[in-house]
Nucleic acid binder design. Structure first.
Lengths: 226, 226
DNA sequence: ATCTGTACTATGTCAGACAAAAGCAAAGGA
DNA sequence: TCCTTTGCTTTTGTCTGACATAGTACAGAT
């Protein structure tokens, strides 16, 4: 028995250096600071991050497997561009995984987790708050599904389409119907119906795919791929 | 115009050194030469492969993201053990992705690809031939689904459960029912019915999951986790 | 038999070096 | 003037060596 008042625990750096680099670059990409197509040479990254080339290279490899950067022939890597082909593939996979996650959530989440999830779809003031609530909704869903593999596959997908998500909601009426879809999903989950939850999730992803595809096609029309 | 008789093309190594290491280690694990739980120190790998520690480390990181090896605290990495929890997670994901792949195959594959797929489920002589045919079936399915992301997510899963697959078919009657399931899937695909194909694939994965889970639980009973 | 200290081993990270490949720019010829 | 060719520079891929840190194992002491 240890003294409950005694807390001498040392919190050691939970992340390795390359992991920190991955996180920082990922966030920078998500925030739009590193736009799609941006070239990243190892030299530049070493200077930007202050870590050695070894660590930079390891981080780049990881970001590559996440699909956030892509090799640029003999120019290092560049921030991945999302073309309509990639968006199609991503949404096809998401359309397979996310309904499954919703179903597993219904089967396994505690009542508290269900309540927390439902709370996220209550009406919010600003658009930013709603987007934030949606991200938290997704996080709760993935946690309650009790499948770390599923989580590790879906999260990178969400990251990749992050930019597109904020873009899709600019399509008139998309944000409203999206919130409606989330509401229906939450209702199905609250009712503890795996089938209805799966169906609702499926409908939502399909609608989101349509909006995202339209958004990216608009982008491609304005800005033909180089 | 170059002289058509003149062929001086140099076929350069298509794979980088770390990629070769990944492939070799992966195959060794799949073949059972590196059994689950086997410790792998960097030093040993450097000696076994003849490449530098840098490349070995990069390969290990990649194998880690594939789930084939897992970090072993301050002992480097070890070949991943498949516990019932991991098997459950893997099959839940597979159950989400593979029916989707079957559906996409129906929608997109050429008639030739369908014919090639159907040919794989014709009766075969030995059990080994049947297993081989099944792997080729999966490869064709993934190719015809026209989704490289889906492919890159399902293939590592197949690799991870490879050992279990060969183990599951030792369960009496499993091989026969498995072949029956593949036959039904092939029929649904030949009929170009996305729904039936998805359903058939779903049934197959569920049955395989059950068999795999039973197999791994037998293993765990005989050989309690250390 | 248990505890303690020390040496060893393994990883994480860094710095530097070199070859190979690709792009770029300048020089030279039509 | 324009095209080709040549050489330089940049960048990646890989290797080597080095050091700090952390965990392990063994031997010696109590």
């Amino acid at each position: 028995m240890t003294d409950p008042k005694l807390d001498l625990m040392i919190d050691r750096p939970a992340e390795s250096v390359p992991e920190m680099v991955v996180r920082r670059i990922r966030d920078a990409i998500a925030a739009g600071l590193l736009p799609p197509g941006r070239q990243l040479t190892e030299r530049e990254l070493v200077e930007l991050t202050g870590v050695s080339r070894t660590s930079v290279r390891e981080a780049m490899r990881h970001l590559q497997t996440l699909g956030l950067v892509e090799p640029s022939p003999s120019r290092g890597v560049r921030v991945a561009r999302l073309g309509s082909a990639e968006v199609r593939e991503i949404y096809e996979v998401r359309d397979a995984l996310e309904p499954a996650a919703a179903e597993l959530f219904v089967l396994r989440a505690t009542d508290e987790e269900v309540a927390a999830l439902v709370a996220k779809v209550q009406p919010h003031a600003s658009g930013d708050e709603r987007l934030q609530a949606i991200y938290e909704f997704d996080g709760l869903l993935l946690a309650g599904a009790r499948n770390s593999l599923l989580k590790s596959m879906l999260e990178p997908l969400h990251t990749r389409i992050h930019a597109l998500r904020s873009l899709s909601v600019t399509i008139p009426g998309r944000l409203e119907s999206s919130m409606q879809e989330y509401l229906e999903l939450a209702e199905a989950i609250a009712a503890r119906s795996p089938e209805r939850a799966s169906e609702a999730s499926h409908r939502h992803v399909r609608a989101a795919a349509k909006a995202a595809l339209k958004a990216v096609e608009n982008l491609e029309r304005e800005n033909p791929e180089s």
